[in-house]
Design a protein around this nucleic acid. Structure first.
Lengths: 123, 123
DNA sequence: TACGTATTTAAGCAAATACTTAAATATGTT
DNA sequence: AACATATTTAAGTATTTGCTTAAATACGTA
């Protein structure tokens, strides 16, 4: 790995920079995965959907549209992104699709939910 | 709070929907704050910057540009967003600005960093 | 089969994002 | 003061995002 240094100040620590680059390089995969999750959760509508699914266990797009006061297609398109990222999964009952959180993905999310509730208490 | 129901299926639980709406309403402030944090962290470059600041304690824009192989203005603009959101703060030493994580904001972030490292171990 | 409901998908568009390059600030050195 | 370095800011642009409306699927029922 070749360092292209633009920082010429005396204190610049090349070893440190090199070490950081190597660390990031090794962790590239983890960053991609976590960035994806956070970028999905980092949207007001989607964070609320995730929070609601955690709270109610499962909900259909129609319910979510009512609760969030949004159009069904708008909700559906948010759902699609999270389904594509395997954060949520669907169960069909007749015409209705019930969505719920994918258990594999709830570690970070649970911490986020905790923080939301904690924030509420503080505020 | 008036319910506008689009969901007409028999199983729809009005009490449940109403309850969800009220909960979201009460927590609006918390959602805004957490969404802001997550939307900032939900970007590959910014998540890496946050991770590096956590790892190295403080770094200057120039170092970050070298490590991330990006232009200095590009890094600076990411920094600005996080500074505006009070996630990071600056300390000046001569011409150099050293940025570090704002301690008030590290709860969720620390969990995220933990998850990144955990992900690395699993992968 | 025809119709109604639940949901998704597609097309179009306005707003937000993230970069680039160039110019402006701030600080330090000669 | 003149110049160099570190950083920010501004302007321009291509891409992405998140909605809207309309059309397509999927399932259930008369």
């Amino acid at each position: 790995m070749k360092l292209e240094i633009t920082c010429t100040r005396a204190e610049a620590n090349l070893k440190q920079l090199q070490n950081c680059m190597e660390t990031l390089d090794k962790m590239e995969g983890s960053f991609q995965k976590i960035t994806k999750l956070l970028s999905l959760a980092g949207n007001d509508v989607r964070l609320k959907i995730l929070f609601l699914l955690n709270k109610e266990n499962e909900l259909c797009p129609c319910d979510l549209a009512d609760i969030l006061k949004m159009s069904v297609p708008a909700v559906s398109q948010h759902i699609r992104k999270m389904k594509d990222a395997a954060i949520i999964t669907a169960r069909r009952d007749g015409q209705t699709l019930y969505y719920s959180l994918n258990e594999d993905e709830t570690d970070i999310l649970n911490n986020i939910f905790k923080s939301i509730k904690l924030e509420r208490k503080i505020a």
